[in-house]
């Protein structure tokens, strides 16, 4: 009885969400139509590029910074008419948003795919409508790479390698035992950051003695680290796939009566504000940045695509890396 009622309610909720979504789309459509009309009568005094962007969601501080960068860059002053939507981590929402942008006839489609697969149909539609597609932050897994113009984002493997290379540079020869806090199992950043780090420490005497998922969250990072600390007496280095898990590990290390950054060194990836603060405070030893400020690159590529210039299929965003001194310097001017 429960299950059938729940199913019915779930159905009703989805239906109502869909209605809300449609309402939002239609109002957006009205406004963009009005915009393009006036643009036509103004006979191309300045060409505004209308761009439809579908964001993954608002799941982390990193994502919030990413959204802000896009919204702050693709402004009217910079020659863009941005329609922005939030997919709340659901692929069907994102496909729906993309379809409505195609119907509106935007000049450029851009999105950060929630998952890697299942995009061929909607991207074919965009291609048929002659709308160029730009991917940001995350890639799609498709055999046909003519479906999108360019993919702008960080190279997660490189991030892992940068972290590993620094560790080797600093600690090779000391026989360090490393534990790894992985991101969400199966997520591209988790797989790639792990692979990159492993490649980089190959040949050194750093050894990964254990690796568990902390799901990219502080709470689980702390719990897993507590387990590691019970299991091993001689952990020298923690490599966490994001700042949050590293911050959780700091709590666990402190609770075990040790000094994070001294007794146990910590390397993380992301460089969000809390992580940078911990780095500046000496509790983390090294952070590889994963740059969320993709707005300027997106604007650049969109303009080139509309102008008919060729763009690179893969644009790797420059990620910096910080040690403790660099963090102290960079912290006051960090945007995120």
């Amino acid at each position: 009885m429960f299950s059938s009622t729940r199913r019915r309610t779930a159905g009703a909720m989805i239906a109502s969400l869909a209605v809300l979504g449609l309402a939002a789309c239609s109002s957006e459509q009205a406004s963009t139509d009005a915009g393009s009309d006036s643009g036509d009568t103004g006979s191309a005094a300045e060409e505004t590029i209308s761009i439809g962007f579908s964001q993954v969601g608002a799941e982390s501080g990193w994502r919030a910074a990413n959204t802000k960068s896009i919204q702050d860059t693709l402004t009217q002053e910079n020659g863009f008419d941005l329609s922005f939507s939030d997919a709340q981590q659901k692929q069907e929402n994102q496909i729906q948003a993309l379809r409505s942008y195609i119907q509106q006839g935007v000049d450029v489609l851009a999105f950060s795919p929630v998952v890697e697969t299942g995009w061929d149909a909607v991207l074919e539609e965009a291609k048929a409508a002659d709308i160029p597609v730009i991917l940001t932050d995350r890639a799609v897994d498709s055999d046909d790479d003519s479906l999108y113009e360019s993919f702008i984002g960080s190279d997660f493997v490189l991030e892992g390698e940068t972290a590993g290379e620094w560790a080797v540079e600093q600690y090779d020869g000391e026989g360090y035992q490393v534990v790894e806090l992985q991101g969400t199992t199966g997520a591209a950043p988790a797989i790639d950051r792990k692979a990159g780090f492993e490649t980089a420490i190959e040949g050194s005497d750093l050894e990964i003695i254990d690796s568990q998922t902390g799901n990219f969250t502080r709470t689980e990072g702390k719990q897993v680290m507590e387990g590691f600390l019970q299991k091993y007496d001689d952990i020298d280095l923690v490599y966490a796939h994001n700042d949050d898990m590293g911050l959780g590990a700091i709590e666990a290390i402190e609770a075990a009566g040790m000094v994070p950054g001294e007794d146990i060194k910590i390397i993380t990836v992301d460089a969000v504000k809390d992580g940078m603060q911990a780095l500046a405070d000496g509790k983390i030893n090294y952070i590889v940045e994963c740059n969320p400020l993709l707005g300027p690159d997106l604007a650049d590529v969109a303009k080139k695509v509309i102008a008919g210039e060729s763009v690179e299929k893969r644009i790797v965003v420059k990620d910096e890396a910080f040690d403790q001194e660099a963090a102290v310097e960079a912290l006051p001017s960090r945007e995120y």
Partner: peptide, 15 residues
């Protein structure tokens, strides 16, 4: 059970 996963070293894939 959660702690056991870490201590026993169950692979994240099959946790």
């Amino acid at each position: 059970l959660t702690l056991t996963v870490t201590i026993v070293g169950v692979s994240p894939l099959v946790t």
